[in-house]
Nucleic acid binder design. Structure first.
Lengths: 216, 216
DNA sequence: TCGGAACTAGACGGTACAGTACCATGGTAG
DNA sequence: CTACCATGGTACTGTACCGTCTAGTTCCGA
């Protein structure tokens, strides 16, 4: 009859409220910095109800993280896949790079990344999940796209996986690592992010040149 | 008379023992996962003595992190500076890259990085310190080295800071980010690290070409 | 309308831990 | 040798919080 995630039922709504509250509090205060009472209060739900839906703090936390990562990563994944049929590699790489960077630099995604990294010792599985659903999946998709582009002769790539790594990190490393350590009180503007992305693409194309369809 | 750090005095030895124990426990269990009793026990010192040397847990933690980062970062910094007078840019870049990568991938450095990232919300200053003493300082040194090499005409670089960022992250991103999220149960071998470093240098030199002193 | 399931509110046991208080003791300077 | 300060050992205070329990209340379907 009723699915746990069904928002039509009362149980479904409560469950969603708890997950939303948990996201807010965990991302702000970290795993140990968060109390179940706080989550219950913010969700406007009794603590008993929290424990009815999630057997304990760990499960609530892991479930929250996995669903959040999956949701955040899906759209990026789609766009990367579409790269394989690109008609204008340079322009499309720039597009993908810009959009991907903006996604990754959202404050809540950054907070989630910090959180998972900080808890890798306590929750090793969570780190794996984050990697596989996030950067790992994106780079795998990118590698297959590069492979296809190489077959079509529009991009010179010998090791697609390595190229995907290089592309990915040329775009994201500078702003991402700064954000990890410097916090996001003064996040880079959209324009700055585009500069990082474009510069990364430039370097990438110098090493993995695109064959232009239209010559000068 | 006596300096706090002087290992000759009894107080100095105790202080060092406390810092060593703190390093072990904090790096293994994180900030909140560590109790002052644990540190005192491992240092074979009474808790009273711990509080005599460090007014509270926060100060002990921050003092530990700053001294550790500084110590780990100094040798890398030296070597990067010496790049400016390189006679064989390609070979020397490869050398620097390999050594830098090995340093950064040491388990305790990785643990420290995870720890600082996870605590950025609680200790923003610590993140800044880590960045400025670690990657920030290295990349600044690298930028001045590149600038000098460009003046000498042996490397084509227009924006030295950007080039330093690109170099740094081309080398380190892949193994570093994997380590951050996947833990270091199965750390990459020295050979694998060298492959990452060499591949990064290759891409870097494609975008920022070196003028060869000796031609084929 | 009615019965059962889901929910609320709050107390409670158990545990862990930061930081303090107190006093005995041992090394060290003078 | 002695006075004294650093240290050891340990008990203690206060707090926080997980997870459980109880007792009463509200929602919803039949």
């Amino acid at each position: 009859m009723s699915t746990p995630g069904d928002l039509g039922t009362r149980a479904g709504r409560k469950r969603r409220a708890i997950l939303d509250a948990a996201a807010t509090v965990f991302l702000r205060n970290g795993y140990v910095g968060t109390s179940m009472d706080e989550i219950a209060a913010l969700a406007e739900v009794s603590k008993q109800t929290v424990y009815k839906h999630f057997s304990d703090k760990e499960r609530l936390f892991t479930e929250l993280v996995t669903t959040t990562v999956r949701e955040a990563s899906d759209p990026v994944h789609e766009e990367v896949l579409s790269l394989r049929d690109s008609g204008d590699v340079e322009a499309d790489l720039r597009d993908v790079a810009r959009r991907q960077l903006v996604k990754v630099m959202q404050p809540q995604v950054l907070a989630l990344r910090r959180l998972v990294i900080g808890e890798v010792a306590r929750f090793p599985q969570l780190g794996r999940t984050f990697y596989e659903l996030g950067p790992g999946r994106t780079m795998a998709a990118m590698a297959t796209a590069f492979e296809r582009l190489a077959e079509r002769g529009v991009l010179r790539v010998d090791d697609p996986s390595l190229a995907a790594e290089h592309f990915n990190w040329l775009i994201m490393s500078t702003p991402l690592n700064r954000a990890m350590l410097l916090g996001d009180d003064e996040p880079p503007s959209r324009v700055e992010l585009e500069r990082y992305a474009d510069a990364g693409v430039r370097v990438f194309l110098a090493a993995y040149p695109a064959a232009r369809t239209t010559s000068a």
